[in-house]
Amino acid sequence: MISLGIVRLNGSSFRPIAYLTIFAGLAGVLGCSEQSNRKPTFPVTGTVHVDGKPVEGIRVELHDSKGLDPKQPTYSSAFTDAEGKFVLSTYDNGDGVPEGDYAITYMWGKLNVMSMAYGGPDKLKNKYVDPKKTPFKLSVTKGKPNELGVVELTTK
């Protein structure tokens, strides 16, 4: 039986089996790499007050302190609701933020209905839109949800 098996492996039936194995292996590797292209995310929530009152429609953006990761680039953002609350999203609604150190920027602009781009003029006078100058920082670590509490902004 064993010798028969060896003969078969060395014979003509070896090639298709080998190709199939290599193909299956490749497919497995490719499938896995596609699955793992997303980074794990952890919930980040908060509330924005402007001059002491909650404001709807403020855009909250995160900027990685190391810059955009070229291998697995992510962008995390959210808009505040009527109570000023926001839940940051990266891939799916409310899924959170990948691990890392971030600068948080805030903008109170509006959606341009023609171009469908959210933009200025910023009612917060561009005080919180520069990632290098914003005083708000965030460190997201594995398995630890973040509640930022009430963030006080001002138009003055």
Partner: peptide, 17 residues
């Protein structure tokens, strides 16, 4: 101009992957 969004986006339709 395609700017992307996130899965199951809320009515603010944020940009995304």
């Amino acid at each position: 101009w395609i700017a992307g969004t996130i899965g199951n986006p809320p009515t603010s339709f944020p940009e995304g992957p």
